[in-house]
Nucleic acid binder design. Structure first.
Lengths: 299, 299
DNA sequence: TGAAGTTTATAACGTTATGTTATATTTTTT
DNA sequence: AAAAAATATAACATAACGTTATAAACTTCA
């Protein structure tokens, strides 16, 4: 009966082919000569044809063997590669991370974090998919992504989340009268038209409460989902806004200025991942790195 | 210490991935469940990360494993392929044969033999390289080819040969006065202009001797290396010739006719192969098949 | 829940693959 | 033909891989 072909036999075959000598091959493999002799004998038996011919003192592979050698070498190379990749994985140097995030992060904060993370991890690749929070939540539930950066998240059994409260600031066009204040209060904004997030959002409610507490009317002008859009509108002099400091800084334009807003209102970000699926080691590492990157902006 | 990755472990890994169950995988592999359990445990140990997560009763590969799976599958597929190809080789259904031959054979007799040979040997491939006898001899000595079909071969220590003596016939243009004879003798050709092989060739010497013995002068018109060229010339009415029956038949044109020549003169073909290099099984088989194909034309 | 049933892991122990050393045989060189 | 080198064979140890028995963990369902 034709037995099973074994890797060790292939290693012996290739070594003998390379050195044209069983003795030499054994040395290179770091085992004894009889061991190689028998590996070859067994392999020849399994394959059903002789493996080498003697030619003036050297062993030359038969044509049958040569016909198989490229495939055999490929197997050995692949094994080697798998071994290397697995090492990279344990050293957190290889893997793939699928990230879903709010559109704002895809362009501003995240790229820098990703670039930094990949710098000393050559085998790691990353997918970034920006979309609305609702979609990000779906993706987490479906486990289509490993990690999500979202806001307005209210909990879901299939999604584990870590909340990050980032500072917010009031932004206004450069040269605006508000630039003389070192801190902005609702009273300062009594006559200003506000650009803000959706009325249903937690953040808007906090903001509205602040105005309410200060007995100042809130003049709503534009409602937008994204802080980046708010920055853009403010820079065009449309109005003023209270946005996360993260966005204000990353907007990086000289057309707007920012000041702390009082009372302190935090914007809640949620770093999420599927509950059921244990994150891969490299994903965990990235999630930590990302949380760390937000530290400077946390309340 | 990171031990060696073994094929059996990969087989277990893929089986468990496929069936999401160790028990089921063991059944499919035809071994006991504990055996699979341990293969996985060992592999996890070697790789350095856990292989599966439990998800409502099923085993789901970790992302780390999924990252390696395509490579692992490729290794297993390749092993399978090698095993299949090696079977084909022993069954003479796979391999490669490099054939060097005279130009005439490349176009006429050989293709049919090759086609027939390949018909029920799907894995076999063949190289055909036509050239002059001198070059064919070189190729044999250099072992650049497995099998050669040549003539005028006078022996060489590095080349083993088998001589084949094929019948020859006299050819002339259709409707020529010779067509009334059932057998042509030198005397019949006394007034004919002859197209023949090189004067140094054995075959020409035999032919010349026949004329000499019959005391008939040989009127040489064209000297050519190839019988096919002679056929061509004859078909254009340039003269008559004595060529191997093989070529006469394969020329397959109604423009020439042939008759046996008397005395019988054989044309010596040599089937050659390198002495030192043992022919592969499939090459031996082809050489036999080719020799067999010449049987109908042998003296 | 918790008890039953199923699945997986662990333990104890053969068999085969793969290694060893010693030695016979073959091949190459002198 | 003898000496030297290379390879094959024999006898035996160890690790890989299989077994069965059984413990532990997980699912299911009353």
């Amino acid at each position: 009966m034709r037995q099973k072909l074994r890797l060790r036999q292939f290693e012996a075959l290739m070594a003998v082919t390379q050195y044209s000598s069983v003795t030499r091959a054994a040395q290179e493999l770091g085992i004894s000569q009889p061991a190689v002799s028998r590996l070859l004998a067994d392999l020849g038996q399994s394959l059903g044809f002789s493996l080498f011919d003697r030619r003036d003192g050297k062993l030359v592979p038969t044509q049958e063997v040569r016909f198989l050698q490229s495939d055999i070498q490929r197997v050995l190379d692949l094994m080697e590669q798998i071994s290397e990749v697995s090492q990279s994985i344990t050293q957190r140097k290889a893997g793939h991370i699928r990230i879903a995030c709010l559109p704002g992060f895809a362009t501003s904060h995240l790229p820098e974090v990703v670039a930094n993370f990949l710098k000393d991890r050559p085998g790691v690749s990353i997918t970034i998919e920006p979309d609305r929070p609702e979609r990000i939540l779906e993706w987490m539930i479906d486990e289509q992504f490993d990690f999500g950066i979202t806001d307005g998240f209210r909990g879901h059994s299939a999604v584990e989340s870590k909340d990050i409260h980032v500072r917010t600031v009031c932004i206004f066009p450069t040269g605006h009268r508000l630039s003389s204040s070192s801190e902005i209060t609702p009273a300062d904004l009594a006559d200003e038209k506000l650009i803000h997030t959706r009325r249903e959002s937690e953040f808007f409610k906090s903001l509205a409460n602040a105005f309410l507490d200060a007995s100042v009317p809130l003049t709503s002008l534009v409602e937008t989902r994204q802080f980046t859009a708010a920055c853009e509108l403010v820079s065009h002099g449309v109005g003023v806004a209270v946005v996360s400091e993260l966005d204000a800084i990353n907007y990086g334009s000289s057309k707007i200025e920012s000041r702390p807003f009082s009372p302190k209102i935090a914007h809640k970000l949620s770093l999420v991942h599927p509950t059921q699926k244990r994150p891969s080691a490299i994903t965990s590492e990235f999630m930590n790195a990302f949380a760390e990157s937000l530290k400077p902006f946390q309340v």
